[in-house]
């Protein structure tokens, strides 16, 4: 009972983290066809901001959480403005290369101004306690992570369904120029996408920092790579697909660890990717991309 509940929560919290990051990638991709590989560096920027504010200003966790969110949204908007706006009309490869370039530049800035070694920032570690719910031992951080992610996805859904800017973003995912022909400013739509993406990266950053207690230049890279796979699995550019892909990966990772014998532990990741490959063999465009949904993005 204990074991099953713990594994379920493991899967949910892994999935939640991937989903948060994957939705951040998907929302930008859906409206401007950009695979933002610099997303991981946005997460790392949140970590460094936390370390700096935590050292210089205050150790108050609430203030630090706000600082992380503000930092991630700001840097995401800044990257859009200085790097991605200029290549908005260029083809998808140019955007991808730009994103890689930005990612490398930021990682090197972190190396230069920070340190290649982990910088400690432990103020969120208190989020991770062992709770006793009935007879079951669970990690409080995993519960926070799962609940926050579900709440964030619900808010985002509400925003996309109810607000005029949200409706415009959904429209832009199909026909951006037609959205502009309705007088809605392209810059505003794109900036909103980057702001949301940054906010989700900030949430992910808080949970990653709570687990690691330190920040490194490359800390965002692996999670973003996994989130990228989640996007591909769910159907690139589809937000429900990104959520679904994230949770499938979370469950696959945990499932593989549970099912594989201890001695084959090293094969866990290979096994996950094998299943992903099989799923993509079954649905080459991802699970939630019906053929009719594909089309020009800009």
């Amino acid at each position: 009972m204990d074991y099953a509940a713990q594994q379920l929560l493991n899967a949910l919290s892994f999935g939640a983290e991937y989903a948060l990051i994957a939705v951040g990638l998907a929302i930008v991709f859906s409206i401007m066809g950009l695979v933002n590989f610099a997303h991981g560096e946005v997460i790392a920027f949140g970590g460094y901001s936390m370390a700096v504010v935590g050292t210089v200003v205050t150790g108050n966790p609430l203030v630090l959480m706000a600082a992380v969110l503000i930092a991630c949204v700001s840097v995401s908007l800044l990257l859009e403005r200085v790097a991605f706006r200029t290549v908005r009309k260029a083809d998808i490869t140019t955007g991808l290369l730009t994103a890689f370039g930005v990612s490398i530049i930021l990682q090197n800035l972190y190396l230069l101004l920070g340190s290649p070694r982990p910088i400690s920032a432990t103020q969120f570690i208190f989020l991770d306690r062992t709770l006793l719910i009935g007879p079951v031992h669970v990690s409080s951080l995993q519960i926070y992570e799962t609940v926050t992610t579900i709440a964030a996805i619900l808010f985002l859904t509400l925003f996309l369904k109810r607000s005029y800017l949200g409706i415009a973003m959904r429209a832009a995912s199909r026909d951006f120029q037609m959205v502009r022909l309705c007088g809605i400013r392209a810059n505003r739509v794109v900036a909103t996408a980057f702001a949301i993406s940054g906010l989700l990266a900030g949430l992910a950053c808080i949970f990653i920092m709570a687990r690691r207690g330190s920040v490194t230049p490359h800390m965002g890279f692996d999670p973003v790579l996994t989130a990228f796979i989640a996007c591909v699995l769910g159907g690139f550019g589809s937000l429900p697909g990104a959520v679904l892909g994230g949770f499938i990966l979370g469950f696959l990772e945990v499932g593989v660890l549970v099912l594989l014998p201890q001695t084959a532990g090293g094969l866990a990741q290979a096994a996950v990717f094998l299943v992903v490959a099989l799923l993509l063999f079954w649905r080459p465009d991802g699970i939630l991309t019906p053929a009719t949904e594909k089309g020009d993005k800009l």
């Binding site: 005029y164 409706i167 415009a168 959904r170 429209a171 995912s173 199909r174 026909d175 037609m178 959205v179 022909l181 309705c182 007088g183 809605i184 009719t292 949904e293």
Partner: peptide
């Protein structure tokens, strides 16, 4: 200047009401 373009270009993933809402966005 407003256009009903060639090929209609309605937002197929939006509802009828949302399409009209986009028309009044400004």
């Amino acid at each position: 200047i407003s256009i009903a373009p060639e090929g209609r270009r309605i937002f197929a993933n939006l509802t009828v009401f949302e399409n009209l809402r986009m028309g009044a966005a400004t």
